[in-house]
Amino acid sequence: KRMHLVCPMNTSPHVDPQKSGHEVWEEFSHSFTPAVREVVEFAKKIPGFRDLSQHDQVSLLKAGTFEVLVVRFASLFDVKDRTVTFLGGKKYSVDTLRAMGASDLLNSMFDFSEKLINLGLSEEEMSLFTAVVLVSADRSGIENVNSVEALQETLIRALRSLITKNHPNESAIFTKLLLKLPDLRSLNNMHSEQLLAFKVH
């Protein structure tokens, strides 16, 4: 059976059947590495992030990179046309990706992207929200929970203040944004299950 990689972090979902599993994995890794590096560069710019221990910086990034990428690449999911743009620039319809083996994760990603984009956040708001997504004290393996929690609270306060200032008549936006955090966790868990299944195969 022909294998496809339906994650848009690939250049294309099509896999060269001549390539070994290792080569396919290497190519996939090569595709998403620049995006992961950008997440690390973003994290470094969050005031206070570099003051956390090295262990906690790595733990937060390991646990949260997928969620940050989902937020950053929400625009790859065109809800109106029901298409996904891969990193190679080509668009694929949901039906095509479904036929290639895409799971319910794809529909969940569409739902999330639609709701997030509909909030109409500015670049600054989206950036601060992304920082809140990354700095979560309840990630596994955090050594100094108090430090991460303190930074998380500072970022949440800053986000609330920015949203209140920019949208004085839309107080629900901040609540809606906080409710996106469990949605992202759920997507992260679904994605981890997919990765597990992929590795087992």
Binding site: S29, T33, V36, R37, V40, E41, K44, R50, Q54, Q57, V58, L61, K62, A63, T65, H191, S192, L195, L196, K199, V200
Partner: peptide, 27 residues
């Protein structure tokens, strides 16, 4: 298998990307 980030090689990429910054701090 319980750590998808490590399986993806993500931890290695993250550590390398953080490294320059962390070395600066140690100096």
């Amino acid at each position: 298998f319980n750590d998808p980030a490590s399986n993806l090689g993500l931890e290695d990429i993250i550590r390398k990307a953080l490294m320059g910054n962390l070395e600066e701090r140690q100096e």
